[in-house]
C-alpha cells in the first residue's frame, strides 16, 4: 500500500502541493483528477523521487521512501509512466524494453516479461527493431507502458496516458490498464480525462491548486454535482448522459 501523508512541494516561491494525503490500497485502481496545474504530475513525480518534497512523507508498504533516489524507488517496485511518454527516441523498441529491466539481473525473468509485453502489445513486437522515435503517439504510449512493466512494478503510476491520443487508442490503453491491474498490479492514475479515469477507478481523489478537495469511490465522484460541473463538462443529472 502506498501512503502519502501531508506531502508538500515548493517550486521556488510557488507552493505546488500544500499538504496532500492519499492512500492507494494494494490491488486497487486509484485515480487522481484535477485541472491543469493542480499538482497532479507533481504528486507522482514526488512519489517517485524526481521532485524533492519540502514536507510530509510517502511510505510504500510501511517503508518511508521520501528522499530516496528515483532508481531506488523504482527498484522497490514503484514505477511511473511519465506524461508525454518519454520513450528514448534514438533507441529501438527492443532496446527501450531492455532498458526498462536495467536494474534487474534475472535473465529468464526479463525474457519472460518481454514476451508478456509483446503479448499485451503485439504491435510492439512487429516494430521491435524500429527506432522508438518513428512510432505513432499511441504506439509510443504502448512502449512507455511496456517499458514500465519491464521494471516489474507492484505499483504502476501513469501520468496522463490518454493525452493527445485518438479515442480508440485511449480505450485500448484503459483496457490494458484494467488487464494489468487484474494481474495484481496496483495502479495510480492521473488524468484530465476525468470520466474515463473515474469509470475504471475503485477510488478517486480531486486535486485543486495543490490540495485534495474531494475523495470517494470512483462511481460516487462521477455522480457528484461539483465534479460533473468542473471536470465532466455537463450539468445533466446522472443517468441522463447520452452515450
Amino acid at each position: 500500500m502506498l501512503k502519502v501523508d501531508e506531502l508538500s512541494v515548493h517550486y521556488g516561491g510557488i507552493h505546488a502541493l500544500q499538504g496532500i494525503s492519499l492512500e492507494v490500497p494494494d490491488g486497487a485502481i486509484v485515480s487522481l483528477i484535477g485541472a491543469n496545474g493542480a499538482g497532479k504530475s507533481t504528486t507522482l513525480r514526488t512519489i517517485v523521487g524526481l521532485v524533492k518534497a519540502s514536507g510530509g512523507a510517502v511510505s510504500w508498504n510501511g517503508d518511508r521512501i521520501t528522499g530516496l533516489a528515483t532508481k531506488d524507488v523504482v527498484a522497490r517496485g514503484v514505477c511511473l509512466v511519465p506524461e508525454g511518454r518519454h520513450v528514448f527516441p534514438n533507441l529501438t523498441v527492443d532496446e527501450n524494453l531492455i532498458l526498462g529491466a536495467y536494474s534487474r539481473k534475472d535473465r529468464p525473468g526479463i525474457a519472460a516479461d518481454r514476451d508478456k509485453v509483446f503479448a499485451l502489445f503485439p504491435r510492439l513486437q512487429e516494430r521491435m527493431r524500429q527506432k522508438a522515435g518513428t512510432l505513432s503517439g499511441g504506439e509510443q504510449q504502448m512502449l512507455a507502458v511496456g517499458r514500465a512493466l519491464m521494471t516489474r512494478p507492484r505499483l504502476l503510476m501513469m501520468d496522463e496516458p490518454s493525452l493527445g491520443l485518438a479515442p480508440l487508442v485511449v480505450k485500448m490503453i484503459f483496457d490494458i490498464v484494467k488487464t494489468i491491474n487484474a494481474e495484481g498490479v496496483t495502479v495510480l492514475l492521473v488524468e484530465q480525462n476525468a470520466k474515463a479515469a473515474l469509470e475504471i477507478a475503485d477510488f478517486g481523489y480531486v486535486l485543486e491548486t495543490g490540495r485534495i478537495t474531494l475523495s470517494g469511490p470512483g462511481k460516487q465522484l462521477l455522480a457528484d454535482e461539483g465534479v460533473r460541473k468542473a471536470y465532466l463538462g455537463d450539468v445533466k443529472p446522472v443517468g441522463a448522459v447520452a452515450r
Binding site: V48, G49, L50, A69, T70, K71, V74, A75, C79, L80, P82, H86, V87, F88, P89, N90, L91, E95, I98, L99, G100, Y102, S103, R147, A148, T151
Partner: peptide, 24 residues
C-alpha cells in the same frame, strides 16, 4: 553494450533514464 545503451538513454532523457532505475 548495456552501459552504452544506458549512455544513449541518459543523453536523450535524464528523467526517463532515472525512471528505468538506471544509475545516472
Amino acid at each position: 553494450t548495456r552501459v552504452g545503451m544506458a549512455m544513449r538513454a541518459v543523453s536523450t532523457d535524464l528523467d526517463a533514464a532515472r525512471l528505468q532505475a538506471i544509475d545516472v
